[in-house]
Each structure stands twice: as C-alpha cells, then as structure tokens.
Amino acid sequence: WEITFERNGKRITVRTTDHRLLELFEKLWRNGADERELERLAEEINR
C-alpha cells in the first residue's frame, strides 16, 4: 500500500505491506503529531 498524507502543503508518502503501520501513521497524522517526527517515521516505514 502507498498513501500520501498532506497538511498545509506538506506531503509525506508512506509505503508498506503492513496496513497496521499505515493506520498508526494516519492516527498520528490526524492527531497533529510533529511533522519532523512523522517524516522520520515515514522514512523508517518505507525501508
């Protein structure tokens, strides 16, 4: 799966075969987690 999240013109794409990681990322994104931390998390998930 691949999903791109966008907020205030900032886009972060997450790619993984584990839908649970996408759900976790989406919850953090929707709850306003720090964008720098989300970028780092996305990099780890995308590996």
Rank of each mutant, 00 (worst) to 15 (best):
R20F: 12
T16G: 11
W29P: 01
T13C: 03
R47P: 03
W29I: 10
R15E: 03
L22H: 03
H19D: 07
R30C: 08
N31G: 13
V14K: 00
K10N: 09
D18K: 04
R11M: 12
N46H: 06
E6V: 12
L24T: 09
L22Q: 04
T13A: 03
E37H: 03
L38E: 00
F25P: 00
R30W: 13
I12E: 01
L41P: 00
V14A: 01
L41K: 03
A42P: 00
R40F: 09
E23Y: 08
H19C: 06
I3T: 08
E44H: 11
E6S: 07
R15V: 11
R30P: 03
H19I: 15
K10S: 11
E39N: 05
D18H: 06
W29N: 02
R30G: 07
K27D: 12
N8G: 10
R7A: 12
W1P: 06
E26Q: 11
L22E: 01
E23C: 11
N31T: 08
R47Y: 10
D18Y: 03
R7V: 15
H19E: 10
F25M: 04
R11V: 14
R30N: 15
R36W: 15
E37N: 03
N46F: 08
G32M: 06
D18S: 09
K27W: 12
E44W: 15
G9Y: 01
L38V: 02
T16H: 10
R15N: 09
T17I: 08
R30E: 14
R15P: 01
T4L: 04
W1K: 08
D18Q: 06
I3C: 13
T4G: 02
R11Y: 15
K10Q: 09
E35T: 11
I45S: 02
R36V: 15
E35W: 15
A42S: 04
R40K: 13
N46Q: 05
R15M: 08
R20Y: 11
D34Q: 05
V14G: 00
E23M: 13
L22P: 01
T16S: 11
W1F: 12
E39F: 07
I3D: 01
T16R: 02
E23F: 08
E6K: 03
I45V: 04
T4W: 04
E37L: 08
V14E: 00
L21H: 10
N46M: 07
T16D: 01
D18E: 08
E44D: 10
F25E: 00
T16F: 07
L21F: 07
T13K: 07
E37A: 10
I12H: 05
E26N: 07
E26Y: 15
I3N: 05
L28W: 10
W1C: 10
T13D: 02
K27E: 13
G9R: 01
R30S: 12
K10L: 11
T17F: 13
T4F: 04
I3L: 13
L28S: 09
H19P: 13
E37K: 05
R47K: 15
E2S: 04
K10G: 02
E37M: 11
G32T: 03
E26F: 14
L38C: 01
R47F: 11
E43Q: 09
W29T: 03
E23I: 12
A33V: 12
L21N: 05
F25K: 00
L38Y: 02
W29L: 07
I45W: 04
E37S: 09
D18F: 04
F25V: 03
E23V: 12
R30V: 13
E6C: 08
E35R: 03
T4E: 06
L24A: 12
N8S: 05
A42F: 06
E39T: 11
R20K: 13
D18V: 05
F5P: 00
K10M: 13
V14R: 00
E26K: 09
N46Y: 06
R15F: 10
T17H: 14
L22N: 01
R7G: 04
L41W: 09
W29S: 03
R47A: 15
L41N: 01
E43S: 08
T16E: 01
L41E: 02
I12L: 07
T4K: 03
N46C: 11
R36H: 15
D18C: 06
N8H: 08
R40V: 11
N31C: 07
T4I: 11
I45C: 03
R11L: 13
K27I: 11
E23W: 08
E35N: 08
G9H: 03
L28Y: 09
R20H: 12
E44Q: 09
R40A: 15
K27V: 13
R15H: 09
G9T: 02
K10R: 09
T16P: 02
E26A: 09
R36G: 14
E43F: 07
R47H: 13
K10P: 01
T17Q: 13
E43I: 07
E43P: 00
I12P: 00
L24M: 15
T4N: 07
V14D: 00
G9S: 04
R30T: 12
N8W: 02
E39M: 11
F5W: 06
D34P: 10
V14M: 04
F25I: 07
T4D: 04
